[in-house]
Write a protein that binds this DNA or RNA. Sequence first.
DNA 1: TACAATTTTCACACTTTCCTGAAAATTCAA
DNA 2: TTGAATTTTCAGGAAAGTGTGAAAATTGTA
Lengths: 189, 189
Amino acid sequence: MNLTPLIQTFVLHFGEMGSRWGINRTVGQIYALLYVARAPLNADEIAEALGFSRSNVSMGLKELESWRLTRVQHKPGDRREYFSAPEDIWAIFRTLAEERRKREIDPTLSMLRDALMENATGAEDQHAQKRMREMHDLIELTTNWFSDVQKLEPKNLVSLMKMGSRVQKFLDLKDKLKLVTGGKSPSNS
Amino acid sequence: MNLTPLIQTFVLHFGEMGSRWGINRTVGQIYALLYVARAPLNADEIAEALGFSRSNVSMGLKELESWRLTRVQHKPGDRREYFSAPEDIWAIFRTLAEERRKREIDPTLSMLRDALMENATGAEDQHAQKRMREMHDLIELTTNWFSDVQKLEPKNLVSLMKMGSRVQKFLDLKDKLKLVTGGKSPSNS
DNA sequence: TACAATTTTCACACTTTCCTGAAAATTCAA
DNA sequence: TTGAATTTTCAGGAAAGTGTGAAAATTGTA
C-alpha cells in the first residue's frame, strides 16, 4: 500500500467494520478507497493500492456494482474501466438504504405476510401470529416512513433532522389546528 | 423440532436472515423462538425445540444478553432460568438500534473524528478529509436525529411516521410562522 | 479475423466462524 | 459442606467464507 497514513486508517477501518455488516474486508476497503479517492481508479490501481489480487478486486467491484454503489467511466484512449463512488453522499446513503431494504427487509415482510395468511388454530400459533403481526406492522410502518422521508430534498431533510424531537411540537400544533381534542387519556403502555 | 409449521418457518427465516446481519444462525433462531413463544423458555427447552446442543444454546443466550434483548426470570421451585423477549416490540426495536449504534456507528464516528483532527497537507489528504467530513456530518446528523425521534412516545412516533413526507408541510408552516425569508437562493447540489 | 489488453471465472488452499461433547464451574437445597 | 442440578468453558472437528493464480472469456483495435 502506498496510501497516506490518513487514508490507510480510513480504509482499514472500513475493512474491519465491513465484517460487522454483511460485507467482506475486500469490498469494504475498496469502497472506502473509492470514496476518498480524488479521481476514479481502475482495477489495477485498486489492487496495487490495497495489496489484493487482481481477481479479488474484480469480484469486489462486481459486488459493489450489484449494490449500485459505484460509477464506471472510461478515459479516452484507455480501455480500462475507471471506478468511483458517487459525489453526493446523500445519494450513496439512499442507495444503501434501498438495497438493504430490498435484501433484508422485503423478504422478511413477505415471510410475515404469508405467515399471517395462514389460518392458525392452536393457541400457540394464534399467539405467534399476534406477535408476527406486531412485527410486521412495525417494520412496514418504519420502512415506509423511512422511504417517504428519504424522498425529501436533502436540504429539507437536514432541517427536519435538526429539529430532532422538537418535531413533536409541530405534531401538537397540528392537533390543535385540527381541533381534534378527543382521546386525551395518556397511554400507559 | 416439535414446533408448529408456522413457527418453524418463522424461526428458520430468522436463522437465515441472521447471517445477513452480523448474527449467527443459532442466535437468530433462538431469538425468533423467544419472540413468538407464549411463555418463557429454559435453555433445555430451547435446545430441544431447535435441535441445537445445550452448550450452543448457552452461548447464544449469552450473546443475546449482551445485546440486552432478553429477560430472565425464575419459576418457584425451579432452579432453571427462563428466557423471554420483551413484550413491547418498540422496546426491542429501541434496544436493537441502540446496540447497533454502539457497536457499528460509534467506532466509525470516533475514527472519523480522529482523522479530521489530523493536519492534512497533501492534496490527496485534503480531499480525503473533505469526504470524511461529509460522511461524519451525515452519520452524526442521522444518528442523533434517530435517537431523538426514538425518545418520542410510541403513540406520537406512530403518528409522526404515518404523516410520512407530509411532514414537509409542517416544516414549511414553521418557516412561515418564523417569517424567516432569508437565503432564498435554491441549492443546485 | 487475429491478437493483445483487460476482465471474469473457478478450483483450491487458507482462514475464520460455528457447533459439539466433555469437563469444569457455579448454584442452591439439604 | 456435600452433592445434584444447572450453566459455562473450551478444544477441536465441521462448515462456511475469503483470496489467489491460472485459465477462460470478453472486448476493442488493426
